[in-house]
Design a protein around this nucleic acid. Structure first.
Lengths: 224, 224
DNA sequence: TAGATGCTTCGGTTATGATCGAACTATGAA
DNA sequence: TTCATAGTTCGATCATAACCGAAGCATCTA
């Protein structure tokens, strides 16, 4: 009867609204302090402290002390991917009270520091179509042409290779139900696009706001 | 603050131990009756009824009445994939009281009617290496050579094409942290291997038990 | 028809855990 | 040093929901 891992444990961990809000906030990829997360969840600092201890204990988030602040981030990219999967199930349900902000999130949003939503899927599929990326089993790798491409785009691939996180990873998009690019390359791509002023982050949500010129440039580079 | 879909809702749904046990039982892909699920969860029929109503309401399972029985199955392959992702997170935690049965599950198990575990990953990667399958973006398709292969293996591809479920799908394996084959082809492959007596299902768990001859044949066909 | 089985609804009990006020420690600023 | 801010621990309150007994409805068998 008791087969496999304790699935109910983590699901319970994610299932509390306050904790779910915290995790969702951390999906931006940014590390946040305990008080910031308390505000995000709409609870007092005491309550948040308890929640964060549980999330930490459960291996979903990782804490880092810095002076009198304590920063929290998602423990691993797998956590972000699982949260996206849960969002996919939730979005499948008619519980879609589609707000105006929701549309923006579907268009482009940040998912653990990389580009997600319609634009994220577009980029990923364009990179594959142009054979800058190649899927080899579950492994995605950069082709020789792709290496040249990202250099020209303004990213140094050698810097990233040294990082511990895998270069390329795929991540299932909850709104598109398709795959987008994650991993350190996904992160670098988004960072570079921010540097180019193609896109900027919304202050209050995970939405990414494209500049009109940015959209044009994006469509040119990542044509389908 | 309230961004995206209601993630806490489904997580709470999965988070109850009784419901989690039910869902895990349904990961076998078989439809089970309410009383069977009650036994699986270790609760009375009344309690199970309430749980199943909630799971149904939440879109995680689908009910089908047949005479005085009511059969339940996972609503969609996405649900199975999400559950596997959660298992991956749970397995990552040290909560690994690795029992003897656990080892069998890691070796080979059934995941929503298709082959998962070490053997599942082996099969998937072998099919890709032999170029019977091709990954094109997020889409996996059968190559011409693959079409010939599965015919020879004893599966009629035309029968499956008509099915509503996608032919090939990938599914992240919680124990291997890699991808294995799902979709109607994955299902057909497992069914065929059962027909060939290579493998049979354990009565009490999701484990798949390979016949010694079956292993040899499997390794021959799905070499790496 | 009567009896058995599968499933559901209702009501009451109980346990779990989320919440906050109050008091505490630790770090940084003045 | 003194004060303010960040975070934690403790204790008490309170709401939610899981659970089962009892009773009901529906379906199949004899």
């Amino acid at each position: 009867m008791k087969e496999g891992p304790d699935i109910a444990g983590i699901a319970t961990l994610i299932g509390d609204p306050a904790r779910a809000n915290m995790l969702t906030a951390l999906m931006s990829g940014k590390a946040l302090t305990a008080t910031e997360l308390a505000a995000e969840a709409g609870v007092t600092a005491q309550t948040a402290s308890g929640h964060l201890a549980k999330l930490s204990q459960g291996g979903l988030v990782q804490a880092r002390k810095q002076g009198r602040h304590k920063y929290f981030a998602l423990a691993h990219a797998d956590v972000a991917a699982t949260l996206e999967a849960l969002m996919g199930l939730a979005a499948g349900q008619l519980r879609t009270r589609t707000g105006p902000r929701d549309a923006a999130l579907r268009e482009a949003r940040v998912c653990y520091n990389h580009l997600a939503g319609r634009r994220g899927v577009q980029m990923f599929e364009s990179l594959l179509a142009q054979e800058y990326l190649h899927e080899d089993g579950a492994v995605i790798r950069l082709t020789a042409a792709g290496d040249g491409f990202i250099r020209e785009f303004g990213i140094d691939p050698d810097v990233m290779q040294s990082a511990r996180a895998p270069l390329c990873r795929s991540c299932l998009d909850w709104s598109e139900r398709r795959t987008h690019l994650a991993g350190s390359l996904g992160r670098a791509m988004l960072t570079r696009m921010e540097g180019l002023d193609w896109v900027r982050r919304d202050k209050d949500s995970r939405a990414l706001l494209f500049d009109p010129d940015g959209v044009a440039a994006f469509d040119r580079v990542f044509h389908i």
